[in-house]
């Protein structure tokens, strides 16, 4: 079943380009602090924008610490709990070109909402091997959790209402680095 996405308008800007970059730099430092350096770390981003954020974090860490960390891309379509409700799933493929066994994997996504995506990502990741530890880095935590999941690193906590949408826009996909809140046009 394919319903056209409802039209949305921008309600407010949350982060501009500089603020977005500062938040990423802070998360990179926190990752290094919490793990006492970059040894045995690997990034896995959830498609699509989680992968882009993971690459940016890896670049930050390389700048700070000089260590080049591996980055993988995880597609969770095959692990969703709501396949029947969504229709026409698009599988974009998992591409993790390194072993995650015994690594500390930092799972990266742009927005944390119900927690269902992360639940699916944890299952998908563990099917690929047994990491020593999984940590969760989220750019925007907008609340409304439906599962007991909490992030280890957060770019920004952003209380929202359920009818709003948080859009993390990134140059690689959207031509700009910005975080905005959108709401349906009929509101």
């Amino acid at each position: 079943m394919n319903r056209p996405a409802p039209r949305r308008r921008e309600k407010a800007q949350v982060l501009d380009e500089a603020a977005l970059d500062r938040a990423l730099t802070r998360i990179a430092h926190e990752i290094l602090e919490k793990n006492s350096g970059a040894s045995n770390l690997a990034f896995v981003g959830i498609r699509t924008r989680g992968v882009t954020l993971a690459h940016r974090l890896a670049a930050k860490i390389e700048k700070i610490d000089g260590t080049s960390l591996p980055v993988g891309a995880l597609d969770i379509t095959l692990y969703r709990d709501d396949l029947d409700m969504r229709g026409a799933p698009v599988v974009r493929g998992t591409d993790i070109p390194f072993s995650i066994k015994d690594k500390t994997v930092v799972l990266v996504d742009d927005v944390l909402y119900t927690g269902r995506t992360i639940r699916a990502a944890l299952d998908a990741l563990i099917d690929l091997g047994r990491p020593r530890m999984i940590q969760l880095a989220i750019f925007i935590d907008r609340g409304h959790r439906e599962l007991p999941i909490r992030p280890d690193y957060v770019g920004k906590n952003l209380p929202t209402s359920r009818r709003e949408v948080v859009a993390v826009r990134m140059k690689e996909h959207d031509g700009e680095d910005r975080v905005v809140i959108e709401e349906p046009e009929d509101a």
Partner: peptide
């Protein structure tokens, strides 16, 4: 796998479509 996934995975029950 692709054929089975697209056929069985995209059959939606009306009224349950999530945003």
């Amino acid at each position: 796998m692709a054929v089975l996934f697209l056929l069985a995975g995209s059959r939606s029950s009306e009224g349950q479509v999530r945003a």
